[in-house]
Nucleic acid binder design. Structure first.
Lengths: 186, 186
DNA sequence: GCTGAAAAGCTAAAGTGTTTAGCCTACGAG
DNA sequence: CTCGTAGGCTAAACACTTTAGCTTTTCAGC
């Protein structure tokens, strides 16, 4: 019997497809095995266990996010950059709800995710520094920005905004609120 | 052998204890059975399945939350009430991190949670109306408030704010930002 | 007090998923 | 060509959920 030609990356690809199509609860090694055409235990040659697979997924997602956010703020600065960041963040969540849900809330605490977490954070901090913030203020503002954006995205993706009123309107209000409240008057 | 004297409520109590002590992943019917001194299948006399147990937990948590928030804003109005609401929300999350994580993000979509969800929402809306907001603005503001507060609480509880800078300071900044951005000038 | 039905417990067992152990073989480096 | 290794496999243990069906407590009504 010929080999399946797997690799850790291929396993993560298959896992991401499953997550995208059927949500995070559907991610089982069994399902990944079926999709990759292999017996479940074979996956252990590429991934330590389910836990590690989840970590690898989380890393992928954070890298995608950093890529996207980085591109979106490129060439912009000040409130304009903040708006771009907020929009692309929400966009990623809406476009890939299950992946967004796989974003680890505390990457810095996790050895295998610290680096990608720090890279993403660095983009956010850079944007805020570009708005004239300095010292501790940068960090406090970044936390607020992250809380607001993540809170909105997480709730939207979970279907938490049940009522029919337009969500884009709500988000614009939040953009404005964040910009007015966190950035030094300009 | 004497009966254990269980009831749906007693099962939920035991489940909440487990969640509080060992986190949401530790919630298994097996664990609940051990704690209540009963065989696992016996629990099915009181609860339809694990899914329903989670729903019952969610309802309890939302009721606790409504109780707390309601008490906190009682007798206050305007920005003062908003601040009180935000503080008590975060406080609940910090005091009961695992329970907070069990709060359903979309209660209104769930028949068994819709009512308690609506009650909690109503408190928030009332506070905002008391600030002079009207019509659609109330809802958009409520969404922003919820996103910010939930985002902060969820991240804090998950250990997502890794750096040492003071979190209370950050939260005060967010309180001010929300109040300034969402409430009509006063 | 008795009795009988409902409620609340039990054991047994099936199904699904993770994980470990140990074997077998395809395949590429030399 | 060969041979070591990596990548696959089967078997099996363990944990958890859930269903089925049996037993026994309890208590309402006589």
């Amino acid at each position: 019997m010929p080999r399946a030609g797997l690799s850790p990356a291929a396993v993560v690809d298959a896992a991401l497809t499953i997550v995208d199509e059927q949500g995070p609860e559907a991610l089982t090694l069994s399902a990944v095995a079926t999709r990759t055409g292999v017996a479940t235990p074979s996956l252990y040659k590429h991934v330590r266990n389910l836990e590690e697979l989840r970590t690898l997924i989380a890393r992928r997602v954070m890298e995608e996010m950093t890529e996207l956010v980085g591109a979106a703020v490129m060439g912009r600065s000040g409130p304009d950059a903040v708006t771009a960041l907020m929009r692309v963040w929400r966009r990623y969540a809406v476009d890939h709800p299950a992946r967004y849900a796989a974003m680890p809330p505390a990457p810095l605490q996790h050895p295998a995710l610290e680096e990608s977490g720090r890279r993403l954070m660095e983009v956010v901090l850079a944007v805020l520094r570009g708005c004239g913030l300095e010292g501790e203020a940068v960090l406090h503002s970044a936390r607020c920005l992250r809380a607001a954006v993540h809170g909105f995205a997480a709730l939207e993706v979970a279907g938490g905004f049940g009522l029919p009123e337009d969500l884009d309107t709500t988000y614009r209000l939040m953009e404005q609120t964040i910009i007015d409240g966190l950035l030094p008057a300009n």
